[in-house]
């Protein structure tokens, strides 16, 4: 038999309820999201703009955030969830402090990206699409960043590294982790 559902839809989740049920965790996050919503809520078709902004400023678009945005924009959350999961730039979970994006476009594939990935996974002890246990580095794959003449290409956060060889990876990763522990003030 089905489990009775007490949070029955009749009490359409109201904003306050929602925050209780889906905490937008950090208040600063809510402030950022509110500002984004306010700026773009009247832009025609602005959902993509809003999600792009949230992704880039908050770093991910969690389920509570989706519910929240739906509520504020009066848009079905199913539509928002559909958009968030359709585009590969949107993530529903936080990324690491740094992302290592390996280009798997044609030029880079032919130019040796698979070997780079293998090496990086070995060094970091994680898989592509995942984040290292210490939350520092996320490994990702992307499809051509338009720098094909320098294949194979890796994008570290916003920085582009071309003509990379597996042998150069350890140094690169050391540099990133160093920068990260510096910036986090340790």
């Amino acid at each position: 038999m089905a489990t009775p559902n007490h949070s029955y839809a009749l009490a359409a989740p109201t904003l306050k309820n929602l925050e209780k049920e889906y905490p937008l965790n950090v208040p600063e996050q809510k402030a950022i999201i509110d500002r984004i919503l306010e700026t773009y809520c009247d832009v025609p078709g602005g959902l993509m703009v809003i999600l792009n902004e949230i992704q880039s400023r908050v770093g991910f678009i969690s389920q509570p955030v989706q519910e929240y945005v739906a509520r504020v924009l009066n848009v079905p959350v199913s539509a928002i969830h559909g958009v968030v999961t359709f585009y590969s730039f949107f993530t529903t979970e936080p990324r690491g402090d740094h992302t290592l994006k390996f280009c798997m476009g044609t030029a880079c594939y032919v130019g040796g990206t698979p070997q780079l990935i293998q090496k990086a996974e070995q060094i970091l002890g994680t898989k592509t699409g995942r984040t290292t246990p210490d939350g520092k580095i996320t490994l990702e794959v992307c499809r051509c960043v338009g720098a094909c003449s320098q294949a194979p290409v890796v994008v570290v956060d916003e920085q582009l590294y071309g003509r990379l060889r597996p042998s150069k990876l350890p140094a690169l990763i050391r540099e990133i982790t160093k920068a990260s522990s510096n910036s986090s003030g340790e």
Partner: peptide, 10 residues
């Protein structure tokens, strides 16, 4: 909804 149960998705 956002990947929840039907009733939760209203």
């Amino acid at each position: 909804g956002s990947g929840v149960t039907l009733l939760e998705a209203r």
